[in-house]
Amino acid sequence: MSLIVDSALEAIRLMASGDARLMEVAQLSVRVSGTATIIAALIALPLAAWLVQTRSAVRAPVVVMLNACMALPPVIVGLVVYLLLSRSGPLGALGWLFTPNGMIVAQTVLITPIIAALARQTLDDAQLEYRDLFGSLGLSRWQSVATLLYETRFSLLIVLLAGFGRAIAEVGAVMMVGGNIAGETRVMTTAIALETSKGELASALALGMVLLLIVLVVNALAQSAKTWIGRRYV
């Protein structure tokens, strides 16, 4: 029990003192996972929209594949992206291995299926509800999809938060692709792994608490954005 108390005190001390290294690591975590979430959304939402309106024969297999890919193991994603970005790999010329860009690529690969699969189901459910209305208003397929995206905006926000949560909480992919370089590619989760292997359990737990706090703040911001959007209704 004293370990938990020690870590909580350490967490408070780290945050209260604005520890420069902690701030740097926390900022990188948010920057990498936030960017990955934005890029993943730009890929996944159009994909989900296409799946909702298409009658193509590939729809069913693609849906099953996306759903299955929600279980992609981060270390496998990390390993594959590592091999791709390695100087000896096909994308080696980019020089992205052991850089934040490489980590963004890995996390984007990891969460794109999650956002696409959840968004597809959300849009499908909404489509069932709105189909007759859109049909009776004579909306085209793409007008319908655009309206569905807007109508499900609050649910889709939660979907994006799920993707962000998965990204910022994973350690396997960023460890492999980023290399946990101090001041360069060290993020909250790899720092926690490092502290744990140093036997600094209180410090590791403290970082874990800070990570949870970051996620909490991001979610609170999303919630207030939602409230703010809803504020124009009486």
Partner: peptide, 19 residues
């Protein structure tokens, strides 16, 4: 200097790949 810490085997492999 940016340090990537791994086991000796993996560290040598990182070098062998030119990373």
């Amino acid at each position: 200097v940016k340090v990537v810490a791994a086991g000796t085997g993996q560290a040598l492999d990182i070098g062998r790949r030119g990373d």
